[in-house]
Design a protein around this nucleic acid. Sequence first.
DNA 1: GTCTATAATACGATAGAC
DNA 2: GTCTATCGTATTATAGAC
Lengths: 227, 227
Amino acid sequence: MNNSAASGAAPAPRGRIRRENETRILEAAERVFAETGLAGATMAQIAQAAGLPKANLHYYFGTKEQLYQAVLTGILELWLDATDMIRPESDPAEAISGYVRAKMRHSRHRPLASKVFANELLSGAPFLTDYLEIDLRKRVEAKSRIIAGWIAEGRMAALDPRHLFFMLWGMTQTYADFAVQIRAVMEVESLSDAAWEEATAEVVAFVLRGCGMSTSAASAAPAGAAR
Amino acid sequence: MNNSAASGAAPAPRGRIRRENETRILEAAERVFAETGLAGATMAQIAQAAGLPKANLHYYFGTKEQLYQAVLTGILELWLDATDMIRPESDPAEAISGYVRAKMRHSRHRPLASKVFANELLSGAPFLTDYLEIDLRKRVEAKSRIIAGWIAEGRMAALDPRHLFFMLWGMTQTYADFAVQIRAVMEVESLSDAAWEEATAEVVAFVLRGCGMSTSAASAAPAGAAR
DNA sequence: GTCTATAATACGATAGAC
DNA sequence: GTCTATCGTATTATAGAC
């Protein structure tokens, strides 16, 4: 149908259409895996969402599981970054509210990534055992020590940092994973810019109070105070 | 295989084995739907989990979608109950911590129900539009007015009650839906009684602080303070 | 009511023409 | 590199013997 690189082998500069097709397939796959998970997704659905024949998916990614792996891997890179603002020298309130903001940004701009991840966890995380038991565990352990240090210094309330992370993940990812529920309760078709900022402000304020850091105005002046 | 009610139509007292088989199938279905959702689950898996031939599932429940509906309906009844402790005359701290405890009990004792629900929301909730847009919305609206009243009386921090609910659901359901992640981070095969109590105490304490009600000892004396 | 055998379809994957 | 046609299998659902 298209004209640019038909009938030959060598693509434009080198592999340009290959990359284009791969990302196109990956995006379509993310969308389909997000809704129905690995087991529920079909290659036909993904092919249709990508606007390509089914055979091309197999040409580029082999099996359905390999395509799924590729999607998951891309998500994990995104996932591990967010904690980087929690450093020993940071101001606790700024670090934690920054982390919450980053997680809310993810929920807003990459909701499908969050949903794929959620589906994978719901099905017992057969493709993520290494990630969970090695990368994530170590990351949480390291960041928990930092937070424990802040607690020991009396700079925030005494709490188990691991449970703090569980709660933060739950609070922020719910805005992506269960968006349909939130939209139904809020009676909107989709959350506006203002609604996202208000949601973020609510979560940040709640978390800071929950961490016992409510007093000093939460750094980046949340806009949702006057309601 | 069994002997009690073979070869005839009329069952023991009346429909006893019918009820037994139905609940047996429903439990098996809940387990399978919890892991892979409606699209990913197969009738063969459910039949094997129930220890019955595939045909019996169709005999009792018709189609896969009807079986799914039956599972979902049972869950919704459970789901709507929990908010009942939030009443105008309640003490705010007791009401909210009671609600959190109830949600944590659900996560602990009915994790599969929570997962089925999560899967349904992830796939866009095609079977729950009425529930979300009518029952849940009204329930949240009613309870939000109560909480807004407490806020107006200065008995808790100023926050949007709807977002409070989103956060509470996220924080508590994560202990069921993403249990595999929590187990990996905590380095345990399964959460012990003590671990569940500590998790609950952490969430309750965090929520009460988040709601600006940290001072007066949170009613049922959490056991996790000395760590 | 129960369960085996099977019909009808959907799915993952590939061969092979272009 | 692309895409149609197709193979083998797995799936939902049912017929029909017991």
